[in-house]
Each structure stands twice: as C-alpha cells, then as structure tokens.
C-alpha cells in the first residue's frame, strides 16, 4: 500500500532524510525507532505533506498515487492520517465542528452521503466512550486546554472517525502516563483490521508492548540502518541506539 523509495528530504537546506526506503503492506504495523534528530518525525510529516520539507529525490507511492504530488488535504482524503506529536490548540472552533468538517470532507471524497448532525453526534459520542473521553469535550475548542493525554486520545478519536487506510502515529506515546498509554493503544488496536497499515514513530519500546509491531526499523542519520522483527525493539531497549550506529 505504501512504497517509499530512496526518499531524500531537506529542511532549511539541511538534509534530514537521506535515502529512506520502506514498504508497508496492508495490515502491517511498522515501528520506526531511533535517537533524537534521526529524522523519524520528519518522515511522518513528509508523508502527510507538511510545508517546509523539501523532497529532493526519491518517490512515495501510496495505493497507486504519487503521494508527493498531492496536497495535504488530498492525501488525507485518499486515506493517509497523521496523528500529531503536538496537536494544535484551536480556540473558538469546537471539536465537534472540526470533526464534522473533517468527516464531511472525507466522506464526500469517498462518495458517501453526508452524515446529518444527529447521526454524526451519536457516532462521535460513541467513539468518545470507547476512548474513555468525556463527551463534553466535543463541545470544547479543538484541543483547547486539553491535557497531554486528552490531546493524544483526541488524535486517536479522529483516526477512528476518519477510518484511514494508512495511519502514521508520531510519538503518540510521548507525554502519556501508563493508563493513558493503554487507552490510546487500545484505540489503535481496535483499528487493526488486517487491512489498515500503521507506521508508529517512537523513541521507546514501551509503546510496542501495547501495540505489537510486525517490523521494527531503526533510523539513524536519515536512513534506515537496521530492520527486524519485534525482538529488535527489545534489543534496543537493552543496549541503546549507539550499539547500531
């Protein structure tokens, strides 16, 4: 579903990704690990189409589309979802307005009928319950005054509502306590249906206790220096990253 080939990308003239290749097949969970500054988050952001990253060479094919040619909103409509490391606070726009606009845009693209407000609200409330979020938080401003855990769970909530085919999770575990991490992981696991692909970006193997990956890749200096199965993460936990570099 996702083929990344020799991807080279720069930020402010500095090469961050230096020839990344990665293939994600339907249903697979790939964990991207690596030390600070290795390019993990950049990879997630380049795939989602964030401004400020300049792709110098390489290609990204997502379900037959040249992903790099699409605007961020088009990527989202095609089924790419990025769960942010730092979700943005947007006071004045309620979470409900935001989620509805987003679901409307995506359903329209998939040629599905628009959900009326009551049906949408019911769906959103149900998903909130699954993620142990108080439904009142739908009325609050987007991420406004949310705790770290609430923000991350809000990302998972959006993911559940938008039903993407490829989920990119950028350090979803950072800033979460064990309980919140478990809830978030359950949310992600609930979306594992054998078809949906996942790329988890994380520092720590802790998250991988809850979301068990099929593959683990170690990123260093902008390229994948080692790939393996789940046991690689455990080895990293024990020995640190310097062992590989």
């Amino acid at each position: 579903m996702l083929i990344v080939k020799d991807l080279v990308a720069e930020v402010d003239g500095k090469t961050i990704l230096n020839g990344i290749s990665l293939t994600v097949k339907p249903g697979e969970v790939h964990a991207i690990m690596g030390p600070n500054g290795s390019g993990k988050s950049t990879l997630a952001n380049v795939l989602a189409g964030r401004d400020g990253y300049e792709v110098k060479s390489g290609e990204v094919i997502f379900q037959g589309h040249n992903l790099l040619e699409l605007a961020p909103e088009e990527r989202a409509r095609e089924g790419v979802f990025l769960a942010f490391q730092y979700p943005v606070e947007i006071p004045g726009v309620s979470n409900m307005q935001f989620l509805k606009a987003s679901v409307d845009a995506i359903r329209k693209h998939r040629k599905l009928p628009e959900l009326d407000a009551p049906a949408f609200m019911k769906m959103a409330r149900d998903k909130c319950k699954d993620l142990k979020l108080n439904p009142d938080f739908l009325k609050r401003g987007v991420n406004e005054g949310f705790s770290g855990g609430e923000k991350k769970r809000n990302e998972i909530l959006q993911m559940a509502l938008l039903e993407p085919s490829l989920c990119l999770l950028d350090e979803t575990d950072s800033g979460l306590d064990i309980d919140a991490l478990q809830v978030a992981a359950e949310g992600v696991n609930a979306l594992r249906d054998g078809k949906r692909g996942f790329v988890l970006v994380t520092h720590y193997q802790r998250l991988l206790n809850y979301i068990v990956p099929d593959y683990v890749h170690v990123l260093a200096g902008g390229r994948i220096v080692k790939s393996g199965g789940r046991e690689l993460a455990l080895e990293l936990e024990e020995k640190g990253y310097s062992w590989i570099q």
Partner: peptide
C-alpha cells in the same frame, strides 16, 4: 496544516480559523 491533514481544504480551513478567532 492540522485542518488540511484532516481532509479539510485550505479555503475552508482558513474560514474556520477566522471564525474560531472571532467566535472565541
């Protein structure tokens, strides 16, 4: 970008952000 990454086109995202600014 947050709005766009959720499938909302740029013009609508701008409109919603403007509204949000005032709606506060």
């Amino acid at each position: 970008f947050y709005f766009q990454s959720r499938g909302i086109d740029k013009a609508s995202a701008e409109a919603m952000l403007c509204l949000g600014f005032v709606n506060e």
